[in-house]
């Protein structure tokens, strides 16, 4: 009982209701995020419709191995996050498992960022930064890379926030400052993490796959 009261916040009287509200709230926020990334993808779609060849040529220059490995890493992090969140919703003794899975999730997130860092380094060396000295001759190929840097950057910011939230849960949970079992915060963090994953699932074919067939 005292556990439940520890998790309860103003203005709620029952934890269950508070949990529902938190979950509902984060889903509304995720709907908002859908529009956020949707608008970016729309920008990409319009530019690609107007310049299909330049986008194919530009897409060929990306490193598909970095992209694919990173996608696999994020998908795996979603698995560990899903297990953490579903286990925490159960009654059993699951603290160790939840902590381990959360730790793995954060580690995979960091791994993604490291791979991304290597990829960025390579991109810069290949002169794929728009502006003077850009590697490709078509001017519209710069649109692709303008969007590439922006979209991956915004995704990376989201992922960094996600990693911070997960690490916070791990630290607080390990120090027994909060109870992870049944924690609304864990549920909310997990949903956010999965959305960041979903965004990447869409970015993968748009960034790494154009122009491979020709």
């Amino acid at each position: 009982m005292s556990d439940a009261t520890a998790l309860l916040r103003e203005p709620w009287q029952r934890l269950e209701r508070q949990r529902q509200a938190g979950k509902f709230g984060i889903w509304i926020f995720l709907a908002s995020e859908t529009l956020f990334f949707g608008a970016l993808l729309l920008t990409y779609a319009v530019c690609r419709i107007e310049h299909p060849d330049a986008f194919a040529a530009a897409g060929r220059e990306t490193n598909i191995w970095f992209g694919t490995i990173n996608t696999a890493i994020l998908l795996t992090s979603s698995l560990t996050m899903a297990v953490a969140s579903q286990a925490a919703a159960q009654k059993g003794r699951v603290r160790q498992l939840v902590l381990a899975c959360l730790g793995a999730t954060a580690a995979l997130g960091v791994a993604f960022m490291i791979v991304k860092g290597f990829e960025y380094k390579e991109d810069i060396e290949k002169h794929l930064v728009p502006g003077t000295g850009f590697a490709l001759s078509q001017p519209s190929a710069q649109l692709f890379y303008g969007l590439y840097w922006l979209v991956t950057g915004v995704h990376a910011i989201h992922l960094t926030i996600g990693i911070a939230l997960v690490v916070r849960l791990v630290l607080l949970g390990a120090a027994r400052r909060i109870r992870l079992r049944g924690s609304p915060e864990l549920e909310v963090t997990a949903l956010y993490w999965h959305l960041v994953d979903v965004v990447w699932i869409f970015l993968y074919p748009l960034i790494y796959l154009p122009g491979r067939a020709s």
Binding site: I28, F29, A31, S32, E33, L35, F36, G38, A39, L40, T43, C47, E50, H51, A54, P130, G131, P139, S140, Q142, L143, Y145, G146, L147, W149, L150, V154
Partner: peptide
């Protein structure tokens, strides 16, 4: 909730083009 994120993106694109030099709307580059 459903419209404001699109405003954020449109302004972010302006900021990105102006500040970071990432071309999005530059007519010379399509």
């Amino acid at each position: 909730v459903l419209s404001t994120p699109v405003l954020a993106i449109s302004l972010m694109l302006v900021i990105a083009e102006r500040w970071l030099g990432l071309p999005i709307f530059d007519p010379a580059r399509g």
